[in-house]
Nucleic acid binder design. Structure first.
Length: 876
RNA sequence: GCUCGAGUAGCUCAGUUGGCUAGAGCGCUGCCCUUACAAGGCAGAUGUCGGGGGUUCGAGUCCCUCCUCGAGCACCA
């Protein structure tokens, strides 16, 4: 019991728990005795921030509570290391870039000098090896932080989303879906990031506001050359897509354009003949009411293109630059080939942004864009506007829609069932359910799972090559499920030889990898041992709890529910527990990109792990919380108080050589003690109820406020004299109540509670049910009413409250007179109702002792005391 | 535009199914070194419960409406 040194305690206990396997999952115990958690595998992209500390602590509270309820807690940890964030981090950190066509160089070592301007191209295999090396380093740092924070994770249950088992399960789950006809590949317009050069899924899109300029483009109408009214004007923010125009759409009931429907319009400059058609999605209120459809400017274009069977004229390449296009007899048709080609050559090879500028200049300069007329193709002045544009959530330039071949998992045919699955899950807080439902109901696309990247789980597919070495994409060769994981880029499919790779009549690999979510949506299966360890799976699945943040309801939660439904028709977990965000004092979300992040390890050093956990535990589930360091200080104060209270109580118990297993609650006969314990009992009942409902913050509030106002500030003060005098009732009460207090705080403050527990309670106690057994408080039972029953029989908390009110008034009188609490007062008078005085008289000795009162007079009064009090204390 | 959440003391927040005089912590003021604790203790001050209307014996809490902030989804020519 030296001076409190939280850092020393933390390091010592971290080691003890690891050595003793305090948090180990016990294989073989039945499902109903198990509490299993589908832990979010954090993205291993460099560093954890204070938001992680916040939400993972909230999960740990539930894990620890369940463990104290006698549950066999299954609390695994995963690292999500596959995917773009890792690739990007490795690229930046090591100054390299993956160039898949390069040969493997076993001797390559990166030069991470940050001053170096250039970037070294490396082979795919080198790149993947370096990704592994970097993530291993990061994962160790993450584990160290979690351990220091006191997460009661079973470190034997870990996985990384790129490890062999995850790659195998990810591929297996995909192949099983292929067997059921739930996956397909198609060459279709897809959301495409031109920087990462990969397709992205609907769930990874986000809208951002971008300044745009609206231009009015005048199209000619075929056969109306001489008619001054024979033009049609469209409005567009993407004039550079004019060569990709395939139709003009108007609303079927728009009278202005009724006579144009069914005729052909001629695009300015390029002289392309495109049909004028009607479709209800054209909004007469917007722009001119007439829209040009391009392949592809936005998702509505895709809809029109599909529903109206329009032509395809793609001009954007995968790098976001305009493709070279030939016009004329063998190329694209135009009423004026030379002019179309000249116009296009001016924009070919440019980015969309550059081409936009050029094409507007061309249109402006063009006096007679429409053949044989003088009508200027640009009408009026451009108008600036703010538009909502779709971005990849990790991207920096707007997404384009580019036709590519991608693999999809069918979801659109399961929307109703997936909403239904969501209704079987308890969402905490409940209102988060609506986020899930809105997302499912708003789904527009199947799940695009292929990515044109490198550090991921390979799509386990090859294609046969025909005699011309062209892949037969409609005849994919799926990998044998017994040989997973497989890398089609380095292994041949069953029945073929490596030398046939990329040869006519041979095979070629699908070069893509899966979307990270395609693997992380399987964490319930990965963690619980599906399908290799059926016993473990049966004893942990479906899991009890999925903790996660609200911004990934549409990705992780949704995909996980969908995968589980397709695998076994079940919900993956009973409870979706949604944490809030940590906001900085300006109420912006704290994130690395905003540069306002505080490093967690520094906080743990400064305030102690328990104090940081206290801050996380005080926040209500699902509520965003402002980052406020004063709460850490409050937590630290609580830790210090517990330490000191523990020192006082245990110091006394040891001074009289009273071991915990000698404590006899039948000796608790003093009314103050009994009444105090009755109040503790009420706190236990309420806290237990709240914890069972995942209301950890409210439970802590209940325990904490009682601890200060009843336990330390009043009960210990009131009973101290008796305890020092060796009164068995007081000593037994001290032992029982401190034991309960430590266990109530143990989930929130695991370090200090374990430390104090070790001074006295650990190992010295019997294993008779209510009394805790074992060497660690974290394997002990959560307090119950039963363990206090002997002492609290027929006791009411009221007597203690009356004593508290009396000592409170004594202190106030002394405070008003500016005298020390120890200063002796010769006489005191208490006026109150007879019944109150009766209760008070049973405990008055403790009150006058604690208040240093020499004599007391109890005066019955028929008048009620002053408003709000039961009694009136005065010093005559 | 639709949906969800939030609005309570200077700050951060709690207020169960309507019920005594609306609470806590921080901060602030004053007092007290009391044998666990000065990294402490005790005491004190502080409110148009976002605005308006309604239901009720009674509304921070229920209903209607409006305002502000945050978020999700949709639209986005």
């Amino acid at each position: 019991m030296a001076k409190l040194d939280t850092s020393e305690i933390e390091h010592r206990l971290m080691q003890k728990w690891a050595q003793e396997g305090t948090y180990q999952f016990e294989a073989g115990r039945p499902r109903e005795e198990t509490f299993s958690i589908d832990t979010p595998p954090p993205t291993v992209s460099g560093s954890l921030h204070v938001g992680h500390v916040f939400s993972y602590t909230q999960t740990d509270l539930m894990a620890r509570y369940a463990r104290m309820q006698g549950k066999n807690v299954f609390y695994p940890m995963g690292w999500d290391d596959n995917g773009l964030p890792t690739e990007r981090r490795v690229q930046n950190k090591l100054r390299i870039r993956c160039e898949p066509h390069l040969p493997y160089d076993p001797a390559f070592t990166p030069d991470p000098d940050p001053k170096r301007k250039d970037v070294t191209p490396v082979s795919r295999r080198n790149f993947i090896e370096l990704c592994h090396a970097v993530t291993e380093e990061d994962e160790q740092a993450f584990e160290d932080l979690w351990t220091r924070l006191g997460l009661s994770v079973d470190w034997d249950q870990t996985y990384t989303t790129i490890d062999d088992r995850c790659r195998r399960l990810s591929q297996l789950a995909f192949l099983q879906l292929a067997d059921k006809g739930e996956v397909y590949s198609s060459h279709a317009p897809s959301m495409w990031d031109i920087d990462f050069r990969t397709a992205v899924a609907q769930a990874e899109l986000e809208d951002r506001e971008v300044k745009g300029v609206q231009h009015r483009l005048r199209f000619g109408i075929e056969g109306s050359d001489s008619d001054p009214e024979g033009t049609l004007t469209v409005m567009t923010t993407r004039p550079e897509l004019l060569p990709a125009c395939v139709a003009v759409i108007v609303h079927p009931e728009d009278d202005r354009y009724a006579s144009f429907i069914g005729r052909q319009a001629i695009t300015p400059i390029f002289g392309t003949s495109v049909p004028v058609m009607s479709h209800p999605l054209a909004d007469p209120e917007k722009g001119t009411g007439a829209v040009m459809v391009c392949t592809f400017g936005d998702t509505t274009d895709v809809t029109w293109w599909q529903e109206l069977g329009l032509e395809t004229r793609v001009i954007l390449g995968r790098d976001g630059r305009l493709l070279p296009i030939a016009w004329g007899e063998t190329g694209w048709a135009s009423t004026n080939v030379a002019r179309a080609q000249a116009g296009y050559d001016a924009i070919a090879g440019k980015t969309s942004k550059q081409a936009k500028v050029t094409i507007v200049e061309l249109l402006r300069d063009s006096a007679n864009a429409v053949d044989g007329s003088d009508r200027a193709p640009l009408e009026g002045e451009p108008v600036e506007t703010i538009q909502q544009v779709k971005f990849f959530e990790k991207g920096e330039r707007p997404l384009e829609i580019i036709p590519t071949r991608q693999w999809f998992i069918r979801l659109l045919d399961k929307k109703e069932q997936l909403v239904e699955q969501g209704r079987k899950i308890n969402w905490r807080p409940e209102f988060m359910r609506s986020r899930y439902e809105h997302w499912v109901e708003g789904l527009k696309l199947d799940w695009c799972v292929s990515r044109q990247r490198y550090f991921g789980v390979p799509v386990p597919v090859w294609y046969p090559l025909d005699a011309n070495a062209e892949p037969m994409l409609d005849q994919p060769i799926f990998a044998d499920q017994a040989t997973l994981p497989v890398d089609p880029m380095s292994e041949p499919p069953a029945g073929l030889e490596s030398h046939q790779r990329d040869q006519p009549g041979g095979f070629t690999a699908d070069p893509d990898v899966f979307d990270t979510w395609a693997t992380s949506s399987l964490t319930p299966q990965i963690a619980t041992g599906w399908p290799d360890n059926p016993d473990k799976h049966a004893s942990t699945y479906p899991l009890d709890m999925r903790p996660q943040a609200h911004e990934i309801i549409r990705t992780w939660a949704f995909y996980t529910i969908a995968r589980a439904y397709m695998i076994d028709g079940q919900i993956p977990w009973e409870n979706a527990v949604i944490s809030g965000w940590v906001l900085d004092p300006d109420r912006k979300k704290m994130s690395k990109s905003k540069g306002n992040v505080v490093t967690p390890i520094g906080l743990l050093e400064q305030y102690g792990s328990d104090a940081v956990r206290y801050w996380a535990a005080k926040a209500r589930l699902g509520m965003d919380t402002a980052y406020d360091e004063s709460v850490f200080r409050v937590g630290r104060r609580l830790v210090t108080k517990l330490y000191n209270a523990g020192k006082l109580v245990i110091g006394r118990l040891e001074a009289v050589d009273l071991a915990y297993d000698q404590v006899d609650s039948a000796q608790i006969t003093n009314e103050l003690d009994r009444s105090f314990l009755a109040g503790l009992d009420a706190v236990i009942v309420r806290a237990t109820d709240l914890m069972a409902n995942y209301e950890t913050a409210a439970a802590l509030e209940t325990i904490e406020s009682w601890f200060w106002s009843h336990f330390t500030d009043n009960y210990l003060e009131l009973s101290k004299n008796r305890a020092y005098a060796g009164d068995p009732s007081a000593l037994a009460t001290w032992a029982l109540s401190l034991s309960a207090v430590l266990r109530l705080f143990a989930p929130t403050l695991p370090f200090i509670c374990e430390e104090i527990w070790g001074w006295y309670f650990a190992g010295s106690v019997s294993d008779d049910g209510a009394k805790p057994a074992g060497n660690s408080i974290h394997r002990c039972a959560w307090p119950t009413s039963e363990e206090l029953q002997t002492a609290t029989e027929n006791a009411s908390p009221d007597v203690f409250e009356i004593a508290v009110e009396t000592i409170g008034q004594i202190r106030r009188l002394k405070s008003e007179r500016a005298i020390s609490i120890r200063e002796e007062i010769p006489a005191m008078e208490v006026a109150a109702d007879k019944a109150i005085l009766g209760q008070l008289s049973a405990v008055i000795d403790d009150v006058v002792n604690a208040g240093a009162i020499n004599s007391v007079k109890l005066t019955p009064s028929s008048e009620p005391a002053s408003a709000g009090t039961l009694l009136e204390v005065s010093f005559p």
